[in-house]
Nucleic acid binder design. Sequence first.
RNA 1: GGCGCUGUAGCUCAGUUGGUUAGAGCGCCGCCCUGUCACGGCGGAGGUCACGGGUUCGAGCCCCGUCAGCGUCGCCA
Length: 585
Amino acid sequence: MKRRSCGALRASDDGARAELCGWVHRRRDHGGLIFIDLRDRDGITQIVFDPQHTAFGDAEHLRNEDVLRVRGRVRKRPEGTENAKLATGAVEVAVDELEILNRSQVPPFQVNLDENPEESLRLEYRYLDLRRPRMQRNLTIRHRIIKAMRDFFDEHEFIEIETPMLIKGTPEGARDYLVPSRLYPGTFYALPQSPQLLKQICMIAGFGRYMQIARCMRDEDLRSDRQPEFTQLDVEMSFSSQEEVLEVMESCMHFVWKRVLGVELAPFPRMGFAYAMERYGTDKPDLRFGLELARVGDLFASTEFAVFASALSGGGEVVAVRYPGGAALSRREFDALVDEAKHLGAKGMVWVALGSDGAKSSAQRFVGEEHAKSIAQRLGAERGDALLLFADERDAAFAVAGKMRSEVGRRCGLRRNDAFAFCWVTDFPYLEIDEETGKPTPAHHPFTAPAEGEWDLIERDPLRMRAQHYDMVLNGYELGSGSIRIHKPELQRRIFEMLGMSREQVEEQFGFFVRALDYGAPPHGGMALGIDRIAMIACGEENLHEVIAFPKTQTARDLMMDAPSPASEKQLRELHLSVPKKKER
RNA sequence: GGCGCUGUAGCUCAGUUGGUUAGAGCGCCGCCCUGUCACGGCGGAGGUCACGGGUUCGAGCCCCGUCAGCGUCGCCA
């Protein structure tokens, strides 16, 4: 007799004998006839217990989440009782043999419902939460995505190389997770924030095309789209231009979406960083909808409105966003919207409602009919829309307008989770000004090559220098970034020097790497994409918890295992560590 | 570290202006039921209103603090 999954049987199996194993999803006891929905990863099959079989007595005592093995005959359901909602709904299994493999306690929440219990309960009983069809589906999709990626790169002659988890820490970037060394008192390994230098060394080692499904750790605060431990698709290629890297990565995503979701993606639009900031106020634009921003400061060049005038005279800008249908908002709703804008970092917000009886504005005395008309024209706004205006320092005005654009998109239902709008953002600035120190720091990492032909800017005008750096963006999420790397040791040293690192600092932190560049490092570049985020968006989810089997809470705890947990005195002694008592901390 | 939301039965939630005995659906227990699929019917059990303090004649509701989960800003080269 053949063991079948709970999602396998069809009308064509009528009459066959089958064995099914699974969990009791739901029980319908009619007294003289018992139906059980038996569930496994693959689906649900209805099994039926008839009073004339000996199994019936045991079936009366089955409860949700008991684990069963049953044997019986597959039969078409009586006419009119088919269930179109189930893939197996044309048939049922008439059970003649029942083996109860294990009983379950009454679960702390119902596995057979779609609603999410409170997050902490889900996480504490993660094995039950993961049994829910939604989680089984999501983790299966995640598996298929990773499988497709491996297949794609294998076909393109990349090889997967595992890099170590215990490596040397780097003082810059995110906070490292540290592992104390037993053999060398007072020293620590760091867990990788990314295999960046190791994959570059694989290029120097002559592997040509590398990929890895790599675990990475960063000890920073969490978000719905950020876990301290995450998985990335890490790629590096030798002798390749930026264009070639973009092509490989983009066709990988086309391949994955086609194979896993059956979706044919359009070519990814590309835009420069400066363009993205002006049109969307962010370097990770959500292109599921338009509503591009427009600068309108010039329309208020001679305004008496103090808020706008002072922003503009200080070199600032007024940036406008269109809110389709926003004219219907009440004054109270506009007030709430202003509060929301402030929460997003706006100093304030002026709204203009394009009503059927003319324009109404929160700054009525200063924003007239003419202004409204001109702004509406630039935004492509129509009667019935609202216009939202933000005045601030240039970058700040664009940034907050961009956040409100996103919020407007949400309110207007434009952020559909079954739409996939990829894009490339390129031509990033090489340096940015650190707000704390006022000093230039690399906008990305210091192994990035400057844009072609811009090396000389390092002496003349370093802040204008751009990088051969690129981001892949999907639905407003940064999936990841990559760059062409510096392969000339003298140029790499020059960059460290520009960043104000002494010879000794470079030797101490990156000596092994710069030394490697000295031995015939080929030109190379690559990229890393966040697989958790890719899986999340592909599954139509909005939190990484839904696509990670055992995620951490926002306070970086594992509620099922109760980690982190204290170490024993003996362990601490061996690691040459001591922990201050609580009150001393 | 800052700001915000949430915490009431096993679960998901409701709970009016501070007022007598804190409710619903699901789940659970018992009985009945041979075509259900969110089966149905009858009956029942189940509450430290997160925790600690305060205001009040009286607190699930108001105030302060703590804890937890989530969202967000900082942070994530």
